[in-house]
Simulated scan of single mutants.
Amino acid sequence: MQEEAVLAEFRASKALLEGHFLLSSGRHSAHYLQCARVLMNPERAARLATALAAKLPHDVRRQIAKVVSPAMGGVIIGQEMGRALQVDAMFVERPTGTFELRRGFALEPGDRVLLVEDVVTTGKSSREAIAAIEDAGGQVIAAAALVDRSGGGVDFGVPFTALVALNFPTYDADALPPELAAQPAIKPGSRSQP
């Protein structure tokens, strides 16, 4: 799936938003990708996951035993990636502020895991999820996301594949351009505001 086709999926589902957004990374942006909207249609979610799975290196694809994603944003794409790769999918969540497997989810020692996210900006959540997977006995062999907003700046210590890379500028709170500073920031993601 080419970049323009991926963006067409986001536009068709009204998932590409413009305004002033406070991202879960703490940075500000004039653009926000609401992946929950692009993934709310099961056929579209399956198409995107199939395309993302096809982009994974073949040697990585054949080794994956489980897909793990962080809740909340990665749950749907993680499930669809499990389907595309024909492996079980589970998620980590933060009931007390730190990612952990719950709900009876468990990894066998040495399970080779694909970490799947919806959007990666700084990679902080992904690194926290990787630590939780490793604490649970899994071995993360690759990471994947629908969208890489990092500008190529993330390093998870494993191969990272994104369906599309978008480089919308992001800003620290004390370095906002005037047009963003003039608008109140909204936080449309799944985490509550600080």
Rank of each mutant, 00 (worst) to 15 (best):
R27F: 11
S24Q: 10
A46V: 00
R47P: 05
R61H: 06
A54F: 01
L52N: 02
R61E: 10
L52E: 02
L56V: 02
V38G: 12
S29A: 15
D59H: 14
L33D: 00
A49P: 08
H28Q: 10
R37E: 13
L33C: 12
C35I: 03
A45V: 02
C35Y: 00
A46N: 04
A45S: 06
A53G: 04
R44D: 02
D59S: 14
P42M: 07
A51W: 13
L56H: 09
S29E: 10
L52S: 02
A49N: 10
N41P: 02
L39V: 03
H31L: 13
L52C: 03
T50G: 15
Y32H: 05
R61A: 14
H31C: 10
G26T: 08
H28G: 09
L56R: 03
A51Y: 07
V38K: 10
N41G: 00
G26D: 12
L56K: 06
A46S: 14
A49F: 09
E43S: 13
R44Y: 04
V38R: 12
V38L: 10
S25G: 11
N41R: 05
A45G: 02
L48A: 05
Q34T: 02
V38S: 06
L56F: 08
A53V: 08
D59R: 10
S24N: 14
R44I: 14
K55C: 09
A45T: 00
G26I: 08
A46K: 12
L39P: 05
V38T: 13
S25D: 12
L52Y: 04
Q34F: 05
L52F: 03
L48K: 06
S29W: 13
V38M: 06
A53R: 06
A49L: 07
A53N: 07
A36M: 01
G26P: 10
K55P: 03
R47A: 11
C35H: 01
E43H: 11
H58M: 09
R37K: 15
S25K: 10
A36W: 03
Y32T: 07
H58P: 06
L39R: 02
A45P: 03
A36G: 14
N41M: 01
L39S: 03
A49Q: 05
Q34E: 15
H28Y: 15
R27K: 15
R47E: 07
S24I: 08
Y32V: 06
A49Y: 07
N41T: 06
R47D: 00
K55I: 01
R61D: 05
C35K: 01
H31G: 00
Q34R: 08
H31A: 12
H58S: 13
L52I: 03
P42I: 09
A45F: 02
A46I: 03
A36Y: 03
T50L: 09
L56A: 08
V38A: 13
T50S: 14
Q34Y: 11
